[in-house]
C-alpha cells in the first residue's frame, strides 16, 4: 500500500530524514515513533505530498507521489499536526469543502458528509463555527476532514496531542474503528498509545529508522532478564541471605520500605528461568510473608529508550534487518 524507498530530506545542510525505507501493507495500523525532532512530521509531510524528498521514491497504492500526485493524493486522508482548520467556517461547511477539494461527486456528497459527521460524533456541533468549538471537537473535525472522500490510507500526525484523558480515549477508539477499512499511519511520542493502537511500530531517531517491529516483539527484544516485583513482610530481615541460597537469582534490590513495614524488592533472573514458585515456597519456610509477587513487565518505554540510546551501534544493524524484512 505504501512503499518508501531510500527517501532523504535535507533542509539546507541539516538532514531531517536520512535514507529511510519501509513498506506498509494494506490494512495495517502503523505507529511512527520518535522523540521530538526525529523526523516524524517530515516523513509524514513527504508521504502526503506536501513536501518533496530530495532523493528517493514514495509509492502510494501503486502511484508514484512525484509522478502521479493527483492519483496518489486521492488515496490519502491527512490530519496534519496541530489540527489546522478554517476558523470562519462551520463544522459542516468545512467537511463539505474538504469533500469538494477531494472531488467527491456531487450526488454522493450530502450523504457521505452526513455519514462522516455521525461517525465522528459531530452532530451536536455541525452548525457551529469552528473557532467556537473545543479542542477535542476540533481534533475530530480534523479527523472528519481526513476521512472525507473514502481514502484508503489515513495519515494522522500526533492525533491526540493536547487532549484531556477522556478525549484521548475517545479519539483512540475512533482511530481503532477506522482501522477496519483503512490503512493507518499515526505518529506519536506517547509510547503507550502506540502499543495500544498499532500492530507495527517504526521507531525513528535523528532521521533514521532504528527499528521496525510489533510492539510485543520490541519489548521482548530489549528484555535482558526476568524481573520480579515482590512485596514482603520480613521481620527478621533475612531475605537477602535466604535469597543467596536460591539458584537463579542474579540480583535482589530493595526498592522501598512501606509505611506498614513491608518491603519492596526487585529480583532479576535469567530470561528463561521463572522463579515465582520457588520464591513462594522458600520464603514462606523462612517466615518471610509474601504480600505481593508479580512479573515486572518491561515496557515499550524501555524498548524505546534503549533503542534510541544504542542507536549508534545497534541502529545500523537494525536498519539492515529492516531492509531484509521488506
Amino acid at each position: 500500500m505504501i512503499e518508501v524507498k531510500n527517501v532523504t530530506k535535507k533542509y539546507g545542510s541539516f538532514t531531517a530524514v536520512d535514507n529511510i525505507s519501509f513498506n506498509i501493507k494494506e490494512g495495517e495500523i502503523v505507529g511512527l515513533l520518535g522523540p521530538n525532532g526525529a523526523g516524524k512530521s517530515t516523513t509524514m509531510n513527504m508521504l502526503t505530498g506536501f513536501i518533496e524528498p530530495n532523493e528517493g521514491q514514495i509509492i502510494i497504492d501503486g502511484y508514484d507521489m512525484l509522478k502521479k500526485p493527483k492519483k496518489a493524493k486521492k488515496q490519502i486522508g491527512y490530519m496534519p499536526e496541530g489540527v489546522p482548520l478554517y476558523n470562519d467556517l462551520t463544522v459542516k461547511e468545512f467537511i463539505n469543502y474538504m469533500a469538494d477539494l477531494k472531488m467527491v461527486p456531487k450526488k454522493e456528497k450530502k450523504e457521505k458528509v452526513q455519514k462522516i459527521i455521525e461517525q465522528t460524533n459531530l452532530k451536536d456541533v455541525q452548525n457551529k463555527l469552528i473557532r467556537n468549538i473545543s479542542r477535542g471537537y476540533k481534533q475530530r473535525v480534523s479527523m472528519a476532514g481526513a476521512l472525507v472522500g473514502s481514502p484508503k490510507i489515513l495519515i494522522l500526525d500526533e492525533p491526540t496531542v493536547g487532549l484531556d484523558p477522556k478525549q484521548i480515549t475517545e479519539i483512540r477508539a475512533l482511530i481503532k474503528s477506522f482501522g477496519k477499512d483503512h490503512t493507518i499511519i499515526l505518529s506519536s511520542h506517547i509510547l503507550s498509545e502506540v502499543s495500544q493502537i498499532c500492530e507495527k511500530v517504526i521507531i525513528i531517531n535523528k532521521g533514521k529508522i532504528v527499528a521496525v517491529d510489533t510492539p510485543n516483539n520490541l519489548e521482548e527484544k530489549v528484555k535482558e532478564g526476568n524481573v520480579l516485583q515482590i512485596t514482603v513482610e520480613d521481620k527478621e530481615g533475612k531475605i537477602e541471605e535466604v535469597s543467596k541460597n536460591i539458584k537463579g537469582i542474579k540480583e535482589i534490590k530493595l526498592i522501598k520500605t512501606n509505611s506498614d513495614n513491608t518491603k519492596e524488592y526487585t529480583i532479576t533472573s535469567d530470561k528463561e528461568t521463572d522463579l515465582r514458585k520457588e520464591l513462594f515456597e522458600k520464603y514462606s519456610k523462612e517466615n518471610i510473608t509474601i504480600f505481593e509477587l508479580k512479573k515486572a513487565e518491561s515496557t515499550l518505554e524501555d524498548a524505546f529508550m534503549k533503542l534510541i540510546e544504542n542507536k549508534d551501534e545497534e541502529g545500523k544493524k537494525n536498519v539492515g534487518n529492516t531492509k531484509k524484512r521488506s
Binding site: 509531510n45 502526503t48 505530498g49 506536501f50 493527483k70 486521492k74 491527512y78 489546522p84 478554517y86 477539494l101
Partner: peptide, 9 residues
C-alpha cells in the same frame, strides 16, 4: 491550512 490544500488532489 496550507497543508490541507496542498495535500488535496
Amino acid at each position: 491550512t496550507e497543508q490541507l490544500l496542498m495535500t488535496s488532489p
